[in-house]
């Protein structure tokens, strides 16, 4: 049997806003097996980044449970949580704002080691920093440079080395390649994939780029305005999308080929995430929406095996 490393149950995160509660993450549940990658996709404001931060308790959840290796981490004390951070890490989107500009490469990479008192001996710590730099493919001569002297790809490698400096097993990758040029993006994606094989890492891979997520993930969860609307193994999701939103999303990706495909162009504007009504949040942009969609909130239902979808009409539309 496969081993579940992280399980999230009914996770909610509401923010206070002047107009009421903003439902950034609304009742999201999923589980990830050790060594696998869960891709979380969605457009800006769908709550994917918030989900990642809530899981690491960089933001406190409003409600719900997060089990890491069977322990409900929402109940852990600050000290216990700090201990757990040695295993749970994050890689940020923006390699330009996620590294302290006043620290050198070596200072950035060794900071987690010092803070967690992992290696006390200065020389050994230095060797460890070099080892990490080799691991992520950073030339050793860059050890005393500052991040602003380096390009985006190298900076992202620093961020990865920093995340691996502890006894990392689980990493939330928050749009790790979105800010990079295509050729560099491929370098970083390959690096993350190799590291996963080498170190047995488990990833949550948050992105808005569906081609990246398809290439990278074992399972994919699609989010729309704080809700998970569809979840399935990547292969299944991309070959057989069921939710109308997933279908539109997939068809909207510009493909670098000449054979033209039909596009679903969505009409209408995104509903406000502030105090949303308990109806289908996609209803006003959905070409299949009917009365029931504007009356009731759809729940996740199993399509087949691991494939789940939250849509009132999926059975009809499938048939």
């Amino acid at each position: 049997m496969s081993k579940i490393i992280l399980e999230v149950k009914n996770l909610k995160k509401y923010f206070d806003s002047p107009k009421g509660k903003l439902h950034a993450v609304d009742d999201v549940s999923f589980a990830i097996e050790k060594g696998k990658t869960l891709g979380v996709v969605g457009e800006s404001g769908c709550g994917k980044s918030t989900t990642g931060r809530v899981i690491l308790r960089l933001l406190e959840a409003t409600d719900g449970e997060i089990f890491y290796k069977g322990v409900n981490i929402r109940k852990l004390s600050a000290a216990k949580m700090r201990e757990l951070r040695r295993e749970m890490q994050i890689i940020f989107q923006d390699p330009f704002s996620s590294l302290d500009p006043r620290n050198t490469v070596s200072e950035i990479i060794e900071e987690p080691i010092i803070l967690n008192k992992l290696i006390k001996n200065k020389k050994q710590r230095f060797e460890r920093v070099l080892e990490l730099m080799d691991l992520v493919g950073l030339s050793r001569r860059l050890i005393n440079t500052y991040p602003h002297e380096l390009d985006g790809g190298r900076r992202q490698r620093i961020g990865i080395a920093r995340a691996l400096a502890l006894n990392t097993e689980f990493i939330v990758c928050d749009e790790p390649v979105s800010a990079l040029d295509v050729s560099i993006q491929a370098q970083i994606l390959n690096l993350l994939k190799n590291l996963q094989h080498k170190l047995g890492l488990t990833y949550i891979f948050i992105t808005h780029d569906l081609s990246v997520v398809n290439h990278f993930s074992d399972d994919v969860a699609v989010m729309y305005l704080g809700k998970m609307v569809e979840k399935a193994p990547a292969e299944e999701l991309f070959s057989h999308p069921v939710h109308p939103y997933t279908q539109a999303l997939l068809s909207a990706i510009p493909r670098p080929t000449l054979d033209k495909h039909e596009k679903i162009i969505l009409k209408g504007e995104i509903t406000s995430p502030i105090e949303p009504e308990p109806i289908c949040r996609f209803a006003n942009r959905c070409r299949y929406a009917e009365d029931i969609c504007r009356r009731e909130e759809p729940q996740l239902e199993t399509v087949e095996g691991e494939h789940e979808v939250a849509c009132h009409r999926w059975r009809e539309l499938e048939g």
Binding site: V182, A186, H215, L250
Partner: peptide
């Protein structure tokens, strides 16, 4: 090189 760097959505 550019073409080879792009993940192909139709071939994961």
């Amino acid at each position: 090189g550019l073409f080879n760097s792009i993940p192909n959505i139709d071939d994961r």
